[in-house]
């Protein structure tokens, strides 16, 4: 555990590429927490996860995992941290069984009965050679190898991409089982906002290498609301600073607020408008947030 009690701590991290910059990036993962990373393509989700795993090194700042510095102790960190991404390297000529044996010799916490159970769950054949697996089967194999290590931290980069709906469902169930253990944490990125919405305790929204928001899921979902109000209200909308989208139709308009609360509700009624409030799904929030940022940046003349 790190000094601040977190399992992962990134502070003041910078990473610069020709067309992408991450500056002053700060992120913590607590014990027992499931953290979901969302953001448009190229936002920096993979960069963030690869920095944590020590595959790439930060230009600036500190990254600590389980109380150790990623820069100096990455080998011992990896005993307790498992990583799955789409491009996992395995030995093509070897079978799934061989990989399981190989992993059991490397990792002290390897759980063979659980590995056997996962073979069944993911419908994998242990005698099959890795090079003959489909993309989905390869991902399932990587997941099996990662889960059966019983790692303290599971780092998943787009784990559901390439999985069919049933396999995605099975994966979600396995991740729920991890939650039973309050010493274990998960950090994952996914384009499946439904999965993120269901699984995460905390949602971190990244865009352009920056953290746009970082909140516990319930507060985050609670703060975004769609308001239906009459068209005449348009002239008064400047009273609110958190509007992310306005859509007009024939009879009324829909206004998306990102920091809705009882004050805003009161304000509408003081202005004499009756409103209807509805919740948004994470998918809707994701779209509104991203489009709003793009409009905002292009209005400032920045080519996002």
């Amino acid at each position: 555990m790190n000094k601040d009690g977190s399992l992962i701590s990134m502070s003041g991290v910078a990473k610069r590429y020709e067309h992408f910059t991450m500056e002053n990036f700060n992120l913590q993962l607590s014990s027992g927490e499931v953290l979901g990373l969302i953001g448009p393509n190229g936002a920096g989700k993979t960069t963030c996860l690869r920095l944590i795993m020590g595959f790439i090194s930060a230009d600036q700042g500190d990254i600590e995992v389980l109380g150790k510095s990623v820069k100096h102790d990455i080998v011992s960190i990896k005993q307790d941290v498992a990583y799955v991404a789409e491009d996992m390297r395995m030995f093509g000529n070897k079978t799934i069984q061989w990989h399981m044996q190989f992993f059991s010799s490397l990792f002290v916490n390897w759980d063979q009965p659980y590995a056997t159970e996962l073979l069944e769950t993911f419908q994998l054949i242990p005698q099959q050679q890795v090079k003959t697996l489909s993309l989905g089967q390869r991902i399932k194999t990587s997941l099996l190898l990662a889960l059966a290590r019983r790692p303290r931290i599971l780092v998943l980069d787009e784990p559901s991409t390439g999985l069919d709906p049933v396999a995605r469902h099975e994966l979600t169930s396995q991740l729920f089982q991890i939650m039973l253990n309050e010493d274990h944490s998960v950090i994952f990125s996914s384009q499946f906002t439904q999965d993120v919405e269901r699984l995460s305790d905390r949602i971190v929204f990244i865009d352009d290498g920056q953290i746009i928001s970082n909140q516990d899921k319930e507060s985050y979902l609670d703060s975004w609301k769609r308001i239906d109000v009459c068209l005449e209200a348009e002239k008064d909308l400047k009273a609110f600073s958190d509007i992310k989208e306005v859509q007009k139709n024939a009879l009324n308009m829909s206004v998306i607020h990102s920091e809705f609360n009882s004050e805003i509700q009161k304000r509408y009624s003081q202005l004499g408008y009756s409103i209807e409030i509805s919740k948004l799904t994470l998918e809707e929030i994701f779209i509104a947030q991203t489009l709003h940022r793009r409009q905002h940046l292009s209005a400032k003349g920045i080519n996002a």
């Binding site: 027992g32 927490e33 499931v34 979600t172 169930s173 729920f176 089982q177 939650m179 039973l180 309050e182 269901r198 699984l199 995460s200 305790d201 905390r202 516990d216 899921k217 319930e218």
Partner: peptide, 17 residues
Amino acid sequence: IRELAVSLNVSVITVKR
């Protein structure tokens, strides 16, 4: 909180809230 979260397949923060 954890037991209920896992059996309902919802996140811990949801049950905590």
